[in-house]
């Protein structure tokens, strides 16, 4: 849609630019704050850093084994993702494409699960995992993450798959392709953008989760990055805003990098029904 860019369009562009500044400015503010000392920040919250003072980053890495925490979080998220997709893709396919009795009820039930607040089931689920012997284990975190992500993942992937033309799948079935062949050669490749989108949404949510790792993991060396960084604040000690900001910033880099790399796939994934 190449258009001639008249004044009206440039005007709108200007408005969007203001919006973009509003979207980015707070983030840039955090970055500049992370390079300032507490005294600098308190005397003038708006100024740019006097020098690129890395002390907050040093403070972070002195206090935490940041690499280990990132490794933990990435490992848990990775495993959770594989499990989640293995379970969600067949279910999404069935609910989107197969017509069988009870499908609607099942679908409604799964979507309804999205409305259960994590806080409400935190304690009962922890007790369950303790009874299974997982009181201080990544198994608990991974289990909760999968449970949390499944409903919305199925909702998203089913919506994407529903837009796929039935003929493709029927053709494969008539060809004699078995269930798993159908999955591997048709459903997954065609639904891939949706799968990638759901994966990114999930990983972002899991990466930023605080309460579940806090409760389900008791050892510091198994902890996730976000939950670990949250222990910086202390009772009655002056709040070190630049330090806290630095911790949160480092913790945010992974989702941001992931997004930047996989931008194109997110957009393709949400395109519902444009597969011709």
């Amino acid at each position: 849609m190449r258009k001639k860019n008249g004044p009206a369009r440039w005007g709108i562009s200007g408005l969007l630019a203001v919006l973009a500044v509003a979207a980015l400015a707070p983030l840039l503010y955090m970055i500049t704050t992370s390079f300032r000392t507490l005294q600098e920040f308190a005397s003038d919250p708006l100024a740019l850093p006097a020098t690129l003072n890395p002390e907050n980053y040093i403070g972070l890495s002195s206090r935490f084994d940041v690499v280990q925490l990132i490794g933990n979080t990435a490992a848990y998220a990775g495993v959770a993702l594989v499990i989640c997709m293995t379970i969600a893709i067949p279910a999404s396919y069935a609910l989107a494409k197969l017509r069988f009795r009870g499908a609607t009820l099942l679908f409604v039930g799964i979507v309804a699960t999205m409305g259960v607040p994590m806080i409400s089931i935190l304690v009962p689920d922890y007790l369950l995992f303790v009874q299974l012997g997982f009181e201080d284990s990544p198994v608990g975190v991974i289990g909760m993450w999968v449970a949390r992500a499944l409903p919305s993942t199925i909702f998203l992937i089913a919506s994407v798959l529903r837009a796929l033309p039935d003929e493709l799948i029927e053709a494969a079935t008539l060809d004699g392709a078995g269930y798993f062949r159908r999955m591997r050669s048709i459903v997954i490749p065609l639904g891939l953008p949706g799968i990638v989108t759901a994966s990114i949404f999930n990983i972002t949510g899991w990466w930023n989760d605080l309460l579940v790792p806090l409760v389900f993991l008791q050892s510091d060396d198994k902890q996730t990055l976000n939950a670990g960084v949250a222990t910086i604040g202390q009772r009655m000690v002056t709040s070190d805003v630049p330090q806290t900001v630095t911790g949160l910033l480092v913790s945010s880099t992974v989702p941001i990098i992931l997004y930047v790399i996989l931008q194109g796939n997110i957009r393709k994934g949400l395109v519902m029904g444009s597969v011709k």
């Binding site: 369009r9 562009s13 630019a17 973009a20 979207a23 945010s252 997004y259 931008q263």
Partner: peptide, 22 residues
């Protein structure tokens, strides 16, 4: 496709990627 649309499309999503705590 107003001028700069590619840039805007990328930039607006960045705050979404941040956690609510941030």
């Amino acid at each position: 496709h107003i001028p700069g649309w590619r840039f805007f499309r990328s930039v607006y999503y960045i705050p979404t990627v941040l956690s609510s705590a941030v």
